[in-house]
Write a protein that binds this DNA or RNA. Structure first.
Lengths: 217, 217
DNA sequence: TAGATTGTTAATCGATTAACAATC
DNA sequence: TAGATTGTTAATCGATTAACAATC
């Protein structure tokens, strides 16, 4: 099955559906209509039905959607039905925070190793995760079946490291450095630009109270 | 001046313009045309001109844009022409990482204090930033002219803490917990949902190589 | 069956791109 | 002045919402 082109806007919303459905499931809710879900999530019922129908008919007329089933389906669509092995480049504050964050492991994202340019860190551990020297990178990626590399180093080094990662066969980069990485077509990059997020907050803060609802997200 | 309604899409792009203009400025570039900038940033020149014109005519026909001037103007629009005082709720891995991250201070975002429910942390410091007990929150916000509160605690506590923050007069929340906070109209929330970002990466990773360029960002 | 709610088509709205007159 | 490039209007494209026939 070659999926029809799914719009970026829809994909952006999928994880949020997944989160709400997970909460409903945990709360013991068995079925939900697009109307009910729309009220909880503050979106239109029409959008929910349109979004879900990109991937197939998960609902049933006159009934609604089975929460557990829909949750599982969206999880599958998001690739959460299998485990991903990750490495983190950068053993600083942010790298350590990401390495130690348990929620990722719950969803099948397994942190396998942290790599740092500083030799002084090598040999240490962050919550059972070994810190290794950059020289060990290529072999480690191959041996541990690494899917995703997290870049948590300053932008000055990020571009060169991304090139190295691509050469090592990495197909997905979760980028926390303040630079837009240029990679081949078959490599995926998802960037988290924290300072840009903070600037948007600053913008909205300075505008609020002038009759412009800031459209929180 | 009551600014005309600026679309959310435009605001989202502003920090990225700011980043590129900062780099051009640091590289000593004096002027740039929308055409040149469009090639560097991989967007259309038309979009750049449309976006900038939401805020006024920053360019000059036949010449282009003065880099330094445009950088300053966008900085002003984003509210970066003044300092913001921040507190962080949560002294865990992520809270500590954000507290210790120097780049925010460079842009005028000053971390004033970290608050944690665990009394054992109180009295300690993260890079000169004191860790304080939650009981000290209301007075600290008032005395230190706090603008922005960062929520870096699990979602189970986040909702209650957000309510407390609002009661203390906080007008901007940078939310890292996995929950959508409901706040009054005059309070701004910017959420960084890390696990949703990672799920999008996972989605794109599982789709790549099927002829669908993953539209990196 | 009657009522409810989906899946899906059509209408609307908004955002992006193209085009070009204004002007430096 | 001639050339370049903006500011801005008009055209296109895509995404959201509304409507309703299909169907459980």
């Amino acid at each position: 099955m070659t999926d029809k082109e799914i719009s970026r806007a829809v994909i952006k919303r999928l994880p949020r559906y997944f989160r709400y459905l997970g909460e409903l499931k945990d709360a013991g809710v068995e079925k939900i209509s697009s109307q009910e879900l729309s009220q909880i999530m503050h979106v239109t019922a029409s959008q929910i039905r349109q979004d879900l129908n990109n991937f197939g008919g998960f609902g049933q007329q006159g009934y609604g959607y089975n929460v557990k089933h829909l949750y599982d389906e969206i999880g599958r669509i998001l690739g959460l039905d299998r485990e991903h092995n990750l490495i983190i480049i950068g053993g600083g504050n942010l790298g350590s925070a990401l390495a130690g964050y348990g929620n990722f492991a719950n969803r099948g994202f397994i942190m396998k190793g942290v790599f740092d340019v500083s030799p002084s860190l090598a040999g240490q551990y962050i919550r059972n995760i070994p810190i290794l020297p950059m020289s060990a990178l290529p072999e480690f990626i191959e041996k541990n079946n690494i899917d995703i590399a997290v870049i948590a180093i300053p932008k000055t080094q990020a571009v060169a490291v991304a090139d190295t990662l691509v050469k090592c066969g990495i197909k997905a980069i979760w980028n926390f450095s303040h630079v837009d990485l240029e990679v081949p077509d078959d490599v995926v990059v998802e960037s988290v630009h924290l300072s840009e997020s903070l600037m948007r907050l600053s913008y909205n803060l300075s505008r609020v109270g002038f009759g412009e609802e800031p459209d929180n997200d």
